[in-house]
Design a protein around this nucleic acid. Structure first.
Lengths: 197, 197, 197, 197
DNA sequence: ATATAAACGAGACGGTACGTCCCGTCTTTCG
DNA sequence: CGAAAGACGGGACGTACCGTCTCGTTTATAT
């Protein structure tokens, strides 16, 4: 993995393919952050990274996939949200999410998702890892709270989850209101009220 | 339609052709429905409509704006949702929305919005007319219900509105669950529970 | 009082504006001198002169004709070349021609002629007034010299004239040698030698 | 970068396709002959030849250069003009030239030259190969004749050459007289008279 | 005096072509 | 062999002008 190279002979031998892959991803990420999704082209990535276009096409089918790959790379799996009560852990998770998405990257993630071929395998992976992982974490939080008899088991947990996590993407996409900590706290509050026995 | 002339504008020269504008919009709409947002190019619209490219550019700055205009044109202002109770009228509105967005046009609307320049005047108009008009109608419904003392005045109405209308766009964009009537009904139910005094 | 009418037309309505015609010509001339023949467009002339495009098209059929008109306007009919002998008058005329064509306008004249529709009435007029008038003057000079018995009447005067005036356009168009006074003098000299009895 | 290879074979990457180049040239030539210089557009050449526009622009900077290249391609270097005397060889060469230029191609050559950027490298090459090569051949003929003591060495050979070859382009461009064999013969005759000792 | 009518400027129209960018594919050379 | 470099046929971009066509506005006669 780490092909240590002597600094005096930088271009000796053929660079490993993993290096090319990473250079392409890094260049794609830079372009996304600096110029936006609309300016991300295979051509530009090849030029900026020094990786050949055919090599890029060997890894990703089109610019959309490359964008999703670049955006996925930077996402660390959201750690389980700590907290003694459902309120506390939900608040904690939502605040993290708001912080994560109220950035340039957040906007690019939404655009990449909207532009992606909805049926593609790659899109599904991106959706699960980047968009729906928090929703699944939320499902676990609710299940644990129900186990603790902190709440009644919700009738339609899918809709409830969408009401918790949907507003974030709604605001991110539509932009009528900012992604703020208040939003996170208030969603947690209202969700709990809807679950009150 | 409106023959009113701005009194300040003397309007020299040949006036823009309403016919050309409509032909371009119709062609754009057809392409969106038949081939999708990604295939909507000014070139294709010009060819299909018989309208010259410069004329199209005189009306819209790029393909995104043209798409939004075409999608906006078909949207009739959502009529005030009837119903004696908040529950009834909210259910009615949400079912209408679900029906409206669970279509090809719905998907195209989401993609157009995601791809649009967020700061543009045109984007703002599209957002307000197509995306946020239902949200404003919901605000009116809630206000009337509070007036009738049917519910307590909600603490943070903005977040509540996002929890009502956000899930629709969340599902539309992410596609993890279908836009169904059950969703509409369940959102209405849970929202009311969160508002219970 | 004066019931005088043009015999052919009663001339109702507003007469064509001589001012507009002149403004267009002046603007065309300026563009030719400053930017060259290739940049002369009806659009640019309309913009620079403040004259409407249709008005320009009422006077000239295309940019080429307008260019020729503008170039013709500045050409004063070459006065009869003075001189006691053929040598003197030919030298005088050729020096004048060299001076006239070794300018920006000279180059534009050649380009306008090359680009013009060879069969057009306008082109013929331009050719006769701007290009061939000097050749006709040369014909007169030769005839007069023959009358004076200064030279023998040339066998093929057309070819001789082309050998006198052709080199100017050859150098103008091809640019392999400059248009200089030496050229003028040498042409006169060699022509006389060819005519020596 | 410092490891610059020998200039003979430095070529990395896919080499330019000679086939594409030739197809473009052939299409350009056809258009010139059938429709004329004014109708030669890069677009039309791309369409007719099946070569992509960017590929055409990789070879030639604009339609003018492409036209010159197409016109140059068909010109076989004028073989040395045979003949025992200067009169014979000059006559022979001029008759060939007249025949070569009294065609559609001849007219297109004149127009291409007039429209070309006079300073461009390409224009210079065209001028030398197509326009001035005959003039250089004429210089050689005259030098040889002077060596043979057939004529006196001319005082200003440049002007003499222009008087020999200028009339052809003069007639070609202005069109007041046809390019005929008589012209060729008469030019030869008059030139010799001017050179008579 | 007041129509009437022609020419005016402005400017939008359907087009053609421009020259550029990027697509995704393909050759070729090199390490 | 795999990866770089880079040309290829394509297609769309957004712009410049083309030459034509309304518009509403002068400007001159002809009623």
């Amino acid at each position: 993995m780490s092909q240590e190279q002597s600094p005096s002979t930088p271009r000796r031998g053929r660079p490993p393919s993993e290096v090319a892959r990473r250079k392409a991803l890094a260049a794609a990420h830079d372009i996304l952050m600096q110029e936006g999704f609309g300016r991300l082209s295979i051509e530009a990535v090849a030029q900026r990274s020094g990786v050949g276009k055919p090599t890029i096409y060997r890894h990703w089918a089109n610019a959309g996939e490359l964008a999703m790959a670049a955006l996925m790379a930077g996402v660390e799996e959201m750690a389980a949200s700590p907290g003694d009560t459902l309120r506390a852990s939900l608040r904690h998770q939502l605040r993290n999410l708001v912080r994560a998405f109220a950035t340039t990257r957040g906007r690019q993630i939404a655009m990449a998702l909207a532009a992606a071929d909805p049926g593609s395998e790659f899109t599904r992976a991106f959706r699960n890892r980047v968009i729906l992982s928090s929703r699944e974490e939320g499902r676990r939080l609710l299940a644990r709270a129900a186990d603790r008899c902190e709440i009644a088991p919700p009738a339609d947990i899918e809709v409830l989850l969408d009401m918790i996590y949907g507003p974030l993407f709604y605001r991110l996409l539509v932009g009528h209101q900012p992604l703020s900590e208040t939003l996170a706290d208030e969603i947690a509050e209202l969700s709990l009220r809807a679950l009150a026995r």
